[in-house]
């Protein structure tokens, strides 16, 4: 039984989907070694776990982006969905543990709604994902500004702070959360019918439609997941920074897209994996940390970031062009 599923899974996996994460993993190892040479203690397990916990926020933000990009779309609205969820969460709870569930429901409900509206716009109104999510980002920014009147209030509750910064023994809880979510998402993508539909919509909408898949429904669910993921990221990141602030989500959008691309998911949809994104997110975080050790100016960091993305894309282009 598992044999049939496994061969089915392997059949759907294209070469870049396997080779890209392996490449990035190798680069990640090299980076860690380089970091270890540059600074004593960089490659120590405790520091690596800290880096992994920093990657977790980006990695979780990139879950939804992976799902949406697998359908051939993109979501630019996670910036203000993250910020909005965070500000609503602290605003509702005001750091009071008794209002935790109310805060979670309000923040995640809003994020989910934003994702659903994106999905409906893309699937039913046939608005291009770039425009729809760009517009949605503006809408979320406006709603957040109106809600907070420009000054976010409140703090994260103790429980969320523990979730984001606490440890079980030596292991950061956030890393365990991330790994748990990664396993769930990967099982969902590769082991369920829904996951299969997601890939088929991204690969070829016409074929997918003709073989009985409700494309619109799949798209709406994909964007809803992305909104929800952004909401979760917002709440967890609030726990990390103990409070919410305007624009806190901006730093996630482009790195999330970069992590997905570095992980080998095609921007045209239909091929890729969350395992790749996971490695991509860790790589980007470690790269930032190594560049910080070298004490290189922010400008140069940004330049290096850009060249890394170009290099990866050129390399992956070769992978998919190589005859099988």
């Amino acid at each position: 039984m598992s044999g049939a599923t496994l061969s089915g899974v392997l059949h759907r996996i294209s070469r870049p989907t396997v080779l890209a994460p392996l490449t990035i993993l190798c680069c990640l190892v090299v980076l860690v070694v380089v970091g270890g040479i540059l600074a004593a203690g960089f490659a120590a397990p405790t520091n690596l776990l800290t880096l992994l916990s920093l990657s977790a926020f980006l990695g979780i933000a990139a879950i939804g982006e992976t799902i949406v990009m697998l359908t051939g779309g993109i979501d630019l609205s996670i910036a203000w969905t993250i910020t909005g969820a965070s500000i609503v969460f602290t605003g509702v709870t005001q750091g009071d543990e008794r209002r935790l569930w109310l805060g979670l429901a309000a923040a995640l409900g809003m994020a989910l709604a934003a994702g659903l509206v994106n999905g409906i716009g893309v699937a039913k109104l046939r608005i291009s994902p770039i425009i729809m999510t760009l517009g949605m980002n503006n809408v979320m920014e406006g709603l957040t500004m109106i809600y907070s009147q420009g000054t976010p209030s409140g703090t994260a509750t103790e429980s969320i702070r523990t979730l984001a910064t606490g440890r079980v023994g030596p292991l950061p809880i956030i890393v365990l959360v991330w790994i748990g979510l990664a396993v769930l998402v990967s099982l969902g993508l590769h082991g369920t019918r829904g996951g299969r539909y997601l890939y088929s919509v991204g690969e070829n909408p016409t074929v997918s439609h003709l073989s009985g898949v409700d494309n619109d429904f799949v798209l709406i669910i994909a964007y809803a997941f992305c909104g929800l993921g952004a909401g979760i990221t917002g709440i967890l990141f609030t726990g990390f920074s103990t409070m919410s602030f305007l624009g806190m989500g901006d730093q996630f959008v482009l790195p999330a897209i970069a992590a997905v691309v570095l992980g080998g998911t095609s921007i045209f949809g239909g091929s890729g994996s969350y395992a790749g994104t996971f490695v991509g997110a860790a790589f980007l975080t470690v790269l930032t940390a190594v560049l910080a050790i070298v004490n290189i100016a922010v400008g140069y960091r940004s330049i290096i970031y850009g060249f890394v993305i170009i290099a990866a894309m050129l390399l992956y282009g070769l992978y998919s062009r190589t005859p099988e």
Partner: peptide, 21 residues
């Protein structure tokens, strides 16, 4: 032959860096 959205995402980072340098 890179997709324009990704190519310009990368150059966006590069030009931003140049401006800051």
């Amino acid at each position: 032959r890179l997709p324009s959205i990704l190519a310009t995402l990368a150059t966006m980072s590069i030009f931003q860096g140049i401006a800051l340098v």
